[in-house]
Simulated assay, not measured.
Amino acid sequence: MQNQDFEIIKSTGEKVKFSLQKLRGSLQRSGADTKDIEYILNIVRDELYQGISTKEIYNRAFALLKKKKSVFASKYKLKKAIYELGPTGFPFEHFVAAVLKYSGYEVTVGQVIKGNCVSHEVDVIARKNGDYLVVECKFHSEEGRNCNVKVPLYIHSRYQDIKKQHQNNKEKEPNEGWVVTNTRFTTDAIQYGTCIGLYLLSWDYPKNNGLKDRIDRLRLYPITVSTLLTNREKHFLLSRDVVLCKQLLGDVFYLDHLGVSEQRKQKILNEISMLCNV
């Protein structure tokens, strides 16, 4: 049986044909060289069977990459690392704020703003060059859960209430409402958001400028991508609002606080420095 004839099961439960090119593309984004990629592809292809899950394929490719170089595995696990910011959406809000901050915005997280009808706690407020963004973050800790049209409908009504209050008080009003999710938007959600002028940002939308593209371009990897930090250490760092690898480079004392040995600390910092291209 040819590899393209294998049906694999996505996290949504949907069955699709296995694509060697898609797997190759995800491995290329990790930074691994052609020789290592072909080696991994050959092993994964030989281990395929009907009904294998995308999770199993990912786990195998990740393990093989990690053996080659941990920094490749870290980049490869980016999508999973975003889910690991959960189970609450709070670290994700700080992550989105950090991405905007490194894009030149002044940001505030969790600010309560008075609307015309009621007050609203806004996940992120961002300002730059006269732009005033009201950003709502929709975090899902489970793969396969997408944002449907109800999300932009709800966010748009909140955004309009805030705008009207600013207009009534003759204050500078927000000029853009954003919805950011770590998963994907349904077709209806994108259609509605585009129609009413909301800016939608998801894992892979807009095309070539989605969350994954911005993270890779700015090298703003979440701390959860690290293959060397334990889950306990990651949770400790997240509880101190250290959500980016870049932040840990400036706050190394947290590793001392965790009792990380000098030798292991250097390995962690080397991995993170390579990720951040420092």
Score class of each variant (00 low, 15 high):
residue 265 K to P: 07
residue 153 L to I: 05
residue 49 Y to T: 02
residue 247 Q to P: 07
residue 14 E to N: 03
residue 144 G to N: 06
residue 25 G to T: 08
residue 50 Q to K: 11
residue 208 N to P: 00
residue 144 G to S: 08
residue 130 G to W: 10
residue 102 Y to E: 15
residue 259 G to K: 07
residue 122 V to H: 01
residue 262 E to Q: 13
residue 174 P to L: 10
residue 27 L to P: 01
residue 243 V to T: 04
residue 75 K to Q: 13
residue 176 E to R: 14
residue 219 R to C: 09
residue 146 N to I: 08
residue 13 G to Q: 00
residue 249 L to S: 04
residue 61 A to W: 01
residue 31 G to Q: 07
residue 232 R to E: 15
residue 232 R to L: 13
residue 64 L to E: 10
residue 98 A to I: 00
residue 215 I to D: 08
residue 258 L to P: 02
residue 99 V to Q: 05
residue 108 T to W: 15
residue 158 R to Y: 04
residue 7 E to F: 13
residue 185 F to R: 05
residue 59 N to D: 15
residue 136 E to T: 06
residue 164 K to Y: 12
residue 249 L to T: 02
residue 183 T to G: 05
residue 251 D to T: 01
residue 269 L to D: 02
residue 234 K to H: 01
residue 53 S to R: 07
residue 184 R to S: 13
residue 103 S to Q: 11
residue 50 Q to M: 13
residue 257 H to Y: 13
residue 145 R to N: 09
residue 16 V to G: 00
residue 135 V to T: 05
residue 70 S to P: 06
residue 94 H to T: 00
residue 74 S to P: 02
residue 228 L to N: 12
residue 153 L to W: 06
residue 153 L to S: 10
residue 264 R to E: 14
residue 176 E to P: 00
residue 55 K to F: 12
residue 230 T to V: 12
residue 107 V to N: 06
residue 34 T to K: 09
residue 180 V to P: 04
residue 273 S to M: 12
residue 236 F to G: 04
residue 248 L to N: 06
residue 109 V to P: 03
residue 152 P to F: 09
residue 56 E to F: 04
residue 276 C to V: 15
residue 19 S to G: 09
residue 277 N to W: 02
residue 27 L to Y: 03
residue 220 L to K: 03
residue 83 Y to D: 07
residue 141 S to C: 07
residue 67 K to W: 00
residue 267 K to E: 15
residue 20 L to R: 14
residue 34 T to H: 05
residue 22 K to W: 09
residue 38 E to Y: 13
residue 170 K to N: 14
residue 209 N to W: 09
residue 154 Y to G: 10
residue 186 T to N: 11
residue 70 S to T: 14
residue 125 I to D: 03
residue 54 T to F: 10
residue 117 C to R: 12
residue 109 V to H: 03
residue 69 K to A: 14
residue 27 L to K: 01
residue 122 V to Q: 01
residue 49 Y to V: 03
residue 155 I to D: 07
residue 223 I to Y: 12
residue 51 G to N: 08
residue 235 H to K: 12
residue 255 L to C: 08
residue 266 Q to W: 09
residue 46 D to M: 10
residue 243 V to G: 09
residue 148 N to R: 05
residue 57 I to G: 08
residue 163 K to I: 15
residue 142 E to L: 13
residue 266 Q to R: 14
residue 78 L to F: 14
residue 177 G to P: 06
residue 130 G to N: 12
residue 184 R to A: 12
residue 158 R to S: 12
residue 112 V to Q: 13
residue 141 S to M: 07
residue 192 Y to M: 12
residue 121 E to M: 06
residue 20 L to H: 08
residue 9 I to D: 00
residue 265 K to G: 09
residue 112 V to D: 10
